[in-house]
């Protein structure tokens, strides 16, 4: 594992290497190098199994993180490659030529995060959602709670009390210092 990491560090200038476990390492790679790094790992280092591809929204940094987790079934090790792409122009090179199922992942990411993968097959076909008009729902600025309060109706008769406030109203309602 260490040899591989050392090798890709020099070749692809990966950074932020975190050895989470002896068989799981996280590395961060620049956007331009990512697909070639993945190709290298798949073809040269035999990381033939793509575990998953997903995104994390770092809204405060205005970034999307794409995480590709690759697995080497022979050596039984995983490398997770993290790539940061700008959130206001989220475009990433498609990896569907490496594994066909990536197209599915990318379709979901397009739908749920609004990340573009040019050339990815069936990218714009709806995958999970139907007739969705809001912002991509897995973005952090989509508020599920707000959406559900606005879309659905509350049950009549529900209402709760905060113990602190309630005790104040019962035991010391006129405390002048409060």
């Amino acid at each position: 594992m260490n040899d591989i990491i050392q090798d890709i560090t020099t070749r692809f200038s990966v950074t932020d290497i975190i050895n989470k476990r002896e068989n799981l390492t996280f590395v961060t790679c620049r956007k331009e190098n990512t697909i070639s790094l993945i190709t290298h790992l798949r073809d040269r280092e035999k990381f033939t199994h793509l575990v998953l591809l997903t995104a994390v929204d770092w809204i405060e940094d205005n970034l999307f993180q794409l995480t590709y987790i690759l697995n080497n079934p022979t050596k039984k090790i995983d490398i997770a490659i993290r790539t940061m792409i700008p959130r206001d122009n989220p475009v990433m090179e498609s990896a569907h030529r490496l594994w066909e199922q990536v197209a599915t992942y990318q379709r979901e990411l397009k739908e749920m995060f609004g990340i573009e993968f040019p050339d990815s097959p069936r990218l714009n076909e709806p995958f999970i959602l139907e007739g969705w008009n809001e912002i991509p729902p897995y973005r952090r600025d989509f508020d599920t709670k707000k959406y559900s309060t606005e879309t659905y109706f509350p049950r009549i008769g529900r209402g709760t009390n905060d113990p602190e406030e309630y005790m104040k109203s019962k035991l010391y309602p006129n405390d002048p210092t409060k």
């Binding site: 905060d162 113990p163 602190e164 005790m167 104040k168 035991l171 010391y172």
Partner: peptide, 8 residues
Amino acid sequence: VECGICIA
């Protein structure tokens, strides 16, 4: 547990 019962 932040119940606030102590405040009273």
